[in-house]
Design a protein around this nucleic acid. Structure first.
Length: 729
DNA sequence: ATTAGTGGTGTTTTT
DNA sequence: CACCACTAAT
């Protein structure tokens, strides 16, 4: 039997987890311990042994990538089709549920999803319309406040506020929700909260789904938020079982509401007695694992787990110190060349960094060297300006009441309708409690700007009319063409790439038609259960699905699979992946751990877990690099090596690079009063930009001190010591 | 009333 | 450096 084949390849703990009886269970699975394998084999085993039909599977993952991976692996093990299964992200599944029951959920059929950018814009619009001082209530702060409360499962009415400030924030939260309701849009957190409330209030629906999903499987459980946990509990009821897989040491999403508390609660409420630890690592050599174990031991809040391997010791970790970020990039480039000559394929090499901004320098070096690379994350396809503009037109086709979309493109491309006019429209819409669209249509302003508004209304009306007869890619093409976006970017000198992206959007629409996840929509139809009436127009429905797809899956579209390319990404997006060789760059205080994490509760512990995730991505070789100076905010910053480097035992490490005392140390000495006479004539110095040189003269003292340096490359230069970051050489 | 240009400001990580 | 908001010129 096939199932035996599958099972014989498992180690005892894995086997135990896969073949657990009908109970809820918590699988604590360390990095590289075969977590996904256990999850997918569990599903396959349950189905093959007749304990479960595909229809009864609800599997939740954290990223779209992970969801796809899971589906692929299940279908590889089974011959049945996986269509009836619900596999996806929390947001994707909630979206699916809300689309099917939009009426019961109190949403318009055409509801649109706001990504974080859209949400921030909506918040700003709200603050403006209420005349709230943005100095006192920063849009970002309000956005964070709203999301944090939603992720905790709290509507504005239930938020406890004690001081004036949070009281006002809570009021604004309520106003924001009303604005969303008026405009027929939902943000990410709202998808979850709405879906939760739907199930909570609607007993029939809740029972239906409980009867249907007898097995609920959750990947990356440590990253679930309070609300997601409540959602799962609601779906599970008392009879269904939850199979949760997670690793508390890899919890890296506290900043968006994830709470490790869920693991403890889950064990108490569901899985008492069935806790299984997977600690054998199949990925990395011993020295890498020892480094990771030693690092994570510095954390206090752990369930306790120690990875081991029976693979060899492998190589020591390589720590390299550079003088500057550009030197760091050069070092990495050189090592990549070495790796290639050792026959390591480019796609098996990853360059990791803490924040997206760090990719620039690396990309520049790679580009100049002509090495193919691929950047994951960062500014994603569907987040690009031109794409957002095009999507806004499409959103207006789907739902002209969408004020956000309306305001975004009313004057893009320019139609002579400026801010003033938009404000007028806004205030009228406020007074009459109707959408911007309604105002523009029934009561357009007069004068020159009014003509522009009328033209815009005609444009949208025409699009809406003509789109009915067209396929999705044709709709997209028509919107891009007729809106004038294409023409607009043709005129821009930098517009070429934008036009290519717009064409890519048409392609995305064309392939979406085929690969659409819409077929699964029929899933509920087979039951004689509550259903919303079929949506009126299947074409419009496809458009909604496409727009939802654009918001939920912002990016993987530029992927060029199969191509040999270096992999660049943040540590966050590297989670779940593995590579032969891994570079972790920018290991400096302030960057990794990030400055902002230092004053957050348990911030450093989360950063350390992030570092743990980064370390455990590597199979054979691991480079840890840091630089003494780095361009940040357009200024050179001086950094000292990350504390995480000190937390890795020295015997596991091989060091290379700068022997020069670090600039930050030198600077530290300079900043102290005792370091007054640090600089003397004739001294060899090093400057991050001008390179090596000799001090020719010293003028002034204290903060006015200046030196004249004869640089080897650029000759004489006078530098203010306070700003010019000189290093003794 | 719109646009273009300028100065001040702020920046982690992602569905 | 890049984005935004405000101000001066069309």
């Amino acid at each position: 039997m096939i199932s035996n084949d599958i099972l014989t390849q498992l180690n005892p703990q894995q086997l135990k987890a896969v073949t657990l009886p009908h109970v809820s269970a918590l699988i604590l699975a360390g990095a590289g311990s075969g977590k996904t394998r256990v999850l997918t084999t569990r599903v396959a085993w349950l189905i093959q042994t007749g304990q479960l039909s595909p229809h009864g599977v609800l599997a939740v993952t954290f990223t779209n990538k992970a969801a796809r991976e899971m589906l692929t692996r299940i279908s590889a093990m089974l011959t049945i089709n996986t269509r009836g299964m619900w596999v996806g992200t929390f947001h994707g599944l909630c979206n699916r549920m809300l689309r099917m029951h939009y009426r019961d959920a109190g949403l318009p059929q055409t509801f649109q999803i706001l990504d974080s950018q859209d949400q921030l814009a909506a918040v700003k619009r709200l603050l403006k319309s209420l005349n709230v001082d943005e100095e006192r209530f920063a849009p970002r702060e309000l956005q964070y406040f709203i999301n944090a409360n939603k992720e905790a499962g709290l509507r504005a009415a239930r938020v406890q506020s004690y001081d004036e400030h949070s009281k006002r924030l809570t009021e604004l939260y309520a106003e924001y929700d009303q604005q969303c309701r008026r405009e027929g849009v939902v943000d990410f957190a709202e998808l979850l909260l709405r879906s939760y409330e739907l199930l909570e209030r609607n007993e029939i629906l809740r029972d239906h789904y409980r009867r249907r999903f007898s097995h609920i499987l959750v990947d990356e459980f440590q990253d679930t938020s309070r609300l997601q946990y409540l959602w799962l509990k609601l779906l599970a009821g008392s009879d269904n079982v939850i199979f949760a897989v997670g690793d508390d040491d890899q919890a890296i999403y506290a900043f968006r509401g994830a709470s490790a508390q869920n693991i403890f609660d889950f064990e108490r409420e569901f899985a008492s007695g069935s806790l299984i630890k997977l600690e054998q690592n199949y990925r990395s050599h011993a020295q890498i694992l020892e480094a990771a174990n030693a690092l994570i031991h510095h954390n206090t809040k752990r369930l306790g787990k120690e990875l081991w391997t029976d693979a060899g010791r492998g190589e020591p970790l390589r720590v390299h110190e550079s003088v500057s970020d550009t030197d760091e990039a050069a070092f990495i480039l050189q090592q990549v060349h070495n790796l290639r000559s050792e026959a390591v394929p480019l796609s098996e090499i990853a360059l990791l960094y803490r924040s997206n901004a760090q990719s620039r320098v690396l990309e520049h070096a790679l580009f100049t060297a002509g090495l193919p690379y691929r950047v994951y994350g960062g500014l994603r396809f569907f987040e690009r300006q031109e794409i957002k503009h095009a999507l806004a037109y499409l959103r207006l086709v789907a739902n002209p009441e969408d004020d956000g979309a309306f305001a975004r493109v009313l004057n893009v491309p320019a139609r002579g309708v400026g801010n003033r006019t938009l404000e007028q429209l806004h205030s009228t819409s406020e007074q009459r409690a109707v959408s911007l669209w309604e105002v523009a249509r029934s009561n357009p302003p007069t004068g020159r700007a009014g003509q522009g508004v009328i033209g815009f209304v005609r444009l949208i009306e025409g699009l809406r009319r003509d789109c009915l007869a067209l396929s999705l890619p044709e709709v997209v093409a028509l919107a891009i063409e007729r809106s004038g976006l294409k023409h607009h970017y043709q005129l821009e000198p930098e517009g070429k790439e934008r036009i290519e992206n717009l064409e890519e959007l048409i392609n995305a629409a064309a392939t979406f038609d085929v690969e659409s996840d819409a077929p699964q929509r029929a899933a509920l139809g087979t039951d004689q259960q509550p259903q919303d009436e079929p949506e009126s127009d299947p074409r419009l429905r496809t458009l909604h699905d496409f727009l939802a797809h654009a918001a939920l899956e912002a990016g993987e579209h530029q992927a060029v699979p199969g191509q040999q390319a270096l992999q660049l990404m943040t540590v966050h997006s590297a989670k779940g992946l593995e590579f032969d060789a891994v570079f972790i760059s920018g290991l400096e205080e302030g960057l990794f751990p990030h400055d902002n994490s230092l004053n957050q509760a348990d911030g450093v512990e989360e950063e350390r877990r992030l570092m743990y995730v980064a370390l455990t991505r590597a199979r054979r070789r691991l480079y840890l690099t840091h630089a003494q100076t780095r361009m940040l905010h357009g200024q050179t910053r001086y950094n000292i090596a990350s504390r995480f480097l000190r937390e890795i035992p020295e015997q596991l490490v091989q060091r290379s690079g700068a022997r020069v005392p670090s600039a930050a140390q030198a600077l530290g000495g300079y900043a102290l009063p005792s370091g007054a006479s640090r600089w003397r004539v004739g001294q060899d110095v090093l400057h991050p930009k001008f390179g090596p040189g000799v001090i020719v003269s010293v003028q002034g003292r204290g903060s006015d001190a200046r030196v004249t340096v004869n640089f080897r490359r650029d000759g004489m230069r006078e530098l203010a010591l306070e700003y010019a970051k000189l290093v003794p050489a």
